[in-house]
Design a protein around this nucleic acid. Structure first.
Lengths: 219, 219
DNA sequence: ATTACTAGAATTCGAGTAG
DNA sequence: TCTACTCGAATTCTAGTAA
């Protein structure tokens, strides 16, 4: 099972440069850096390999490692946590209720042009679908305020002769679960917002139409 | 000794809100969230307290914790690691003001053991003296981050029965002039850094106590 | 020099439980 | 309910060492 120490070692490897290429490492040196023995470092690297968090190959007498996509996802998640701690002193709370949308969310979110930007800028691979939430009237001015902010910009694109507009996103939590709120850059007035997440939010949070949700939007 | 798990728990506490105020936590809930038992969570929190990383007090039957300055320093360092991984800055900018030091800089810098290494590794013959700069509070995180980096290592030595410790240096510019920032390898927390250069910086940059300087540190 | 195995030592865990 | 102690069990460590 993945443990704190594994994330730590992943981080060390990323700092050495194993983020996007194979880097040679010495188990004794990385061990020394992390305050563990050479043997333990060796074992941990093997564990990372067995969990498919790093690729590993011999490089002469040393070994070389490269963090896998899965490993980078874990580091992105950590990065997200630290951003929340240090870079988001301000947040807005919204309350609303779950409704059923038009089913367009899934279509948009799975367009490569958006999907890839979400991964890069929001640090998670989105579940292919959106959760539609009707914000309660008392919080609508907050929604309008959000519309006036730049947020995290997802650039529009053209695909198959169709134009997909600029979209903005805000890192959020919904009932405590990491998520993001997305809205068109120039959106018309509406009391419905769309929430995306790594997981199927309806399942994970056991939501059904009419369920009340609390959304915390980090600015 | 501080361990990965302690940093993890600090992070969890920060996410709950213990960054700047006391927050009530239940050992069983935080344990569940972190995948450890209630007993272990309880023990870890006590360990954090004993290491002066959190303040702790009873709040009825529950406990309340607040991360200390020392604890936040550790989280900041982590945060910088992740920024380095995902944003890879190539330099760091610091701003501060010139102060008068204790005059020790001149003594240290003229010891042959340091002087020769500076010539070899930093590629200049240092003016015999250091400029002390008090970094403004907003940039102290960056200084702490620098402390966590290896920099350019200047080995310690023994001379005339006295021990001179390992020192590290970073190539920099100060108000545009080539310089280097030097600090002890294992330095204590301070907001004062020392800058050396080929020239007398006070003269060359027309500095006096209280002058604001911009330092760019190359990583 | 390396990495990584074995095995005994050291540490850490959590069930049980007191307060 | 809570927190947090004890103590036997489980896990994790590193020294020794082979390759």
């Amino acid at each position: 099972m993945i443990d704190f120490r594994h994330i730590y070692m992943l981080k060390e490897i990323a700092l050495i440069g194993g983020k996007d290429k194979f880097v040679e490492i010495s188990t004794s040196k990385i061990g020394e850096k992390m305050g563990i023995s050479q043997q333990t470092a060796s074992r941990w690297i093997t564990e990372l390999f067995n969990m498919d968090l790093v690729q590993k190959k011999r490089s002469g007498r040393k070994i070389a490692v490269k963090i896998t996509r899965k490993g980078m996802d874990i580091l992105r998640r950590e990065s997200f946590d630290y951003r929340r701690i240090f870079e988001s002193p301000e947040y807005i709370e919204l309350t609303g209720e779950v409704i059923t949308g038009l089913g367009e969310g899934r279509y948009y979110i799975t367009r490569k042009g958006y999907y890839n930007q979400i991964k890069e800028k929001l640090f998670f691979e989105p579940y292919p679908g959106t959760l539609n939430v009707r914000i309660y009237p008392g919080d609508l001015d907050k929604v309008n305020f959000l519309r006036s902010l730049p947020g995290i910009s997802l650039k529009g694109f053209v695909s198959q002769g169709r134009t997909f507009g600029n979209v903005k996103a805000f890192l959020s939590t919904i009932n405590g679960v990491e998520a993001a709120l997305i809205m068109p850059d120039r959106s018309h007035y509406t009391d419905v917002i769309e929430v995306i997440s790594r997981d199927n939010l309806r399942k994970k949070l056991k939501l059904e139409d009419g369920s009340t949700v609390d959304i915390v939007v980090y600015l």
